[in-house]
Design a protein around this nucleic acid. Sequence first.
DNA 1: GCCGTTTTCGGCCCGACTGTTTTCAGTCG
Length: 581
Amino acid sequence: MRNKEIGALFDEIADILELRGENRFRINAYRRGAQSLTRALRDIDELAHDDALTAIPGIGRDLSAKIMEYIETGTIRYLDELREETPDVLLEMLRIPGVGPKTSRLIYEELGVKSLEDLALAAREHRLQLLPKIREKTEENILKGIEFLERSGGRIPLGTAYPLASRIVSSLSELEVVVEASFAGSLRRMRETVGDIDILVSSPDPEAIIQGFTHLDIVERVLAEGKTKGSVITKEHIQVDLRVVPSESYGAALNYFTGSKEHNIRLRELARQRGMKLNEYGLFRKTRSGREKRSAGASEEEVYEALGLVYIPPEIREDTGEIEASKRGEIPQLVSADDIRGDLHVHSDWSDGVSSLEDLVRAGLGRGYGYIVVSDHSKSLRIANGLSENRLLRQIEEIDRVNEKTRGFRLLKGSEVDILPDGSLDMSEKLLCMLDIVVVAVHSRFKMSRDKMTKRVIGALENPYSSILAHPTGRLIGERDAYGIDLDAVFDAAAETGTAIEINAHPSRLDLDAAAARRAAERGVLIGIGTDSHDPALDFDHMRYGLGTARRAWLTPDHILNTRSVRSLLSIFRRKQKRQQ
DNA sequence: GCCGTTTTCGGCCCGACTGTTTTCAGTCG
């Protein structure tokens, strides 16, 4: 999928056009095009091949020609020319919070800075104050902005943002004047990384809330402190924005601040078409006397309803077809925490986990699960204390003993078996056939050709005993890219062989990602959500990120393996064994 | 530059805060 790659180029064109002060609607057209490409479900090369590029919303005659040019020649001449005429530092300055195109150009033209280091020096020497409309405060903010960029270096993983946001929401909820409080933004949509944390509160006394917020003990620096809006940097260098609205606007505001931006724009257009206006205070209709009357706003549900839509869950508010589905009344019942009956990928202290088998039973029961798949590493993974075949035999006996003592819960015998470079499994058939669930995964030799890796993984899926393919791309968010693999070919093989594919719920993996999981499910692949837990006290909670990813992929309980009972689970893989043998 | 249930031309989402100014431009989400 090169969609993101081309989307980034259109964004760059938009940035440069903005710096040049071009027509803002033209700039917006490139931004929309970029967003559309990034979110498109189908592969751009495929669409180009079918001559169907203009079917993507926001892609018309000009943009599709530029996409074709890029596919054919590997470059867009127009962008090359723009780059030629635009010094890099102008674009770099745009990344500083508070610096936009106008300021960037002003600084460059008047001071001739060549780099962000140059700019920082100019700020420290107070030379920025020589410029019109820049005084002490702006200069300080630019300096702090550069430092922020250097320290934070980009986006925050979901696994960091979610607990922090939850803590802030519960601290704020303790304030007397708070009516409702929630986090919003890309965090509420459960994106795998977020740029900042957005918090929304309803209250009759906004200023008290803003005061309370800017004085929380997590705050390092206050960026903004208005009547209804506050913004801080935490000690971990994460930006947190707070908005306070009256109760009658809470739903409209929650909707607005949850986004996505593209989803909101569609909603606003819909409101306009119906002669209404939607903003963060509500949905308004003009009365005959010319005054505005609120028709909805207290809850998100009533906003959608007043727009003639069925409620759309936050995770799918990305303008990838949810508005149309909602108009038709066809929003799926997304899988939720209540549907999950067990965890499919858990390590114990037999390999690199910290818990005994008994601890796992207690932790599983504590979460209301009916089963857990014990999936310790196989013998090749020595670094993680992988189990020799003899130790696995002993573990199987031990699991039987633990299960005998337990009512209403079952430890399933499993293993996370290495997929060897030739596609075979790191375990003899004699042992494989004694296991309930065989999780298979690549843990070594990542750097092979895309073709070989695809064959290797498909080879493992064709093994009659493999049940679930774990973390199919091997990516570690912000650390390691996915290895080269043809996922669509893997999905076809999984559907063909009756093998499930994992959404690994660990926040540093989330592998499959939502877009890929959606494609897999559309091809008929059953999806299992596993936490890859090494410590139940910390890692069992990661199920929520796996669920978030599944929901972003539009998945219902029917698509998910671990919404099934133990019996149904086991029968699925017995069927596969029979078919493949 | 895109797009059409007020349309093939004339629109294109909306509001808060900051910092600099005396009424608002720039930035952000």
